[in-house]
């Protein structure tokens, strides 16, 4: 298995070293193999996209443990749904949608949000490793403290660049609600960040 992973990794690395076109072609080949239940091909896709999916889950949950669980759940669901992927959207976008669903599903299963926040604050490491520095780290921490819906909309819209319509579709809310939640998120972030000198 280790040798196979090395081969797969090499193919992937070569694709990354070339142009985006090559990556897309390579990815398409792996997708086709994964759709034929090739777990090794799916692992290549996993390694190609895991940072994107984990990043999204971490931003949405604000918690390492939950982000890991959601990432794993998202890839397991993706494996089960591979045959349904028809390429209408980019594979990364398709995975993003599954990851958002995994996060929302996990939240639905959990107890009240307040309990979750309390539990998270009890077990969460002091610093989540995101690569953010300086003011960005303060911003990331402030985003983590946002209420659930406002946080989700802010992450999808402001961080990942999805339109309100796209974010609303992923979250199962109306586009108007997405706009209202973004406004709410901005006001709450302003309250938090101004105290830390993050001013215009």
């Amino acid at each position: 298995m280790e040798a196979l992973l090395t081969v797969a990794g090499s193919d992937y690395s070569r694709g990354m070293a070339n142009a985006d076109t090559n990556i897309a072609v390579d990815e398409q080949a792996w997708i086709l193999k994964a759709q034929r239940a090739d777990a090794r091909a799916f692992e290549v896709l996993y390694r190609l996209h895991v940072d994107k999916i984990y990043g999204l889950c971490l931003r949405m949950t604000g918690n390492v443990s939950e982000a890991e669980d959601c990432t794993q759940e998202a890839f397991i669901q993706a494996w089960n749904k591979m045959a349904k992927f028809r390429g209408d959207s980019a594979f990364a976008t398709w995975l993003h949608r599954i990851a958002v669903n995994a996060v929302l599903g996990r939240i639905r299963k959990s107890k009240r949000e307040q309990d979750r926040i309390q539990a998270v604050s009890d077990v969460q490491p002091a610093r989540v490793v995101t690569g953010d520095t300086g003011e960005l780290r303060d911003l990331a921490a402030a985003v983590d403290r946002l209420p659930e819906r406002a946080r989700h909309v802010f992450v999808l819209n402001a961080v990942y660049g999805y339109s309100h319509e796209e974010a609303a579709g992923m979250l199962g809310i109306a586009a108007g609600t997405s706009k209202a939640q973004l406004h709410r998120a901005r006001r709450l972030l302003m309250q938090q960040l101004e105290e830390q000198g993050f001013t215009a």
Binding site: V50, R186, L193
Partner: peptide, 18 residues
């Protein structure tokens, strides 16, 4: 503030290695 917030948000890392 919103402009600065949006610029900063776009700089947040979107790919994070577990």
């Amino acid at each position: 503030f919103d402009d600065k917030l949006d610029r900063a948000a776009r700089q947040l890392a979107t790919e994070i290695a577990p």
